[in-house]
Design a protein around this nucleic acid. Structure first.
Lengths: 110, 110
DNA sequence: TTCTCAAATCAAATATTTTTGATATGAGGT
DNA sequence: ACCTCATATCAAAAATATTTGATTTGAGAA
């Protein structure tokens, strides 16, 4: 039944690394070229590429090639998707099962 | 100025691991004892304790000791905090800087 | 075509996270 | 006091994630 934890985890991978949070903060100011990000973060080209792939795969960041360069920006669509998903993952189900413990098959601890 | 990426990353660590997403899904049905989680997830006691610590540190899960047992549940307060933080991290700043590239000090690529 | 340069990819090294098994802690019961 | 059991903690092993440097790819310019 209930779906791919892997897919959901991938969305939030974007936000659980400090470097990626710094990248997102830079992108909040507007579209940025990779070279600017490399400069600002003092990170290697290869490492930036690695992080941008994770951010792209999460759907939070989108990219636009222009000539030799690639410009990155925050995806509104991806962000809203993540926001809705987070709300869903933390919202209690309307039907609640009673709090049981493995030893309390017929007697509750209270 | 802008705060601890580490603290923010910690919040989303709750959601970027498959086991923890499965734990949260179980908790959406209501408060659960650790022993139930161990049974349901087919996970070691030590591993569950490790994951519950990460979930607690993120603020998403709260715990309640009762006798020998500890009952875990989703924290509404923590969940709302995470939702607001996610929105903040993905919302563009009102003042946008123009898209520049490291080579375009005075000439833009278009 | 060739040259240049930005970005992606690869493989190896490094760092971090997660699992496992053992032990310690702490509360409840006897 | 003890014993029992649930959880936390520790250290080592295993699994992943990240960084680094080299190479490849692909687009633009000559």
């Amino acid at each position: 039944m209930s779906v791919s934890y892997e897919v959901h985890a991938k969305v939030f991978k974007a936000f659980c690394d400090e470097k990626r949070l710094r990248i997102l903060e830079l992108l909040r100011d507007g579209e940025k070229c990779a070279c600017i990000l490399i400069e600002s973060l003092e990170i290697g080209q290869s490492a930036l590429s690695y992080h941008m792939k994770i951010l792209s795969d999460s759907g939070i960041v989108e990219s636009r090639p222009e000539g030799k360069w690639i410009y990155y920006s925050i995806s509104e669509r991806g962000s809203i998707f993540a926001q809705n998903l987070l709300k869903e993952l933390t919202t209690p189900n309307p039907v609640q099962s009673p709090p049981t413990c493995c030893l309390d098959i017929d007697s509750h601890p209270e």
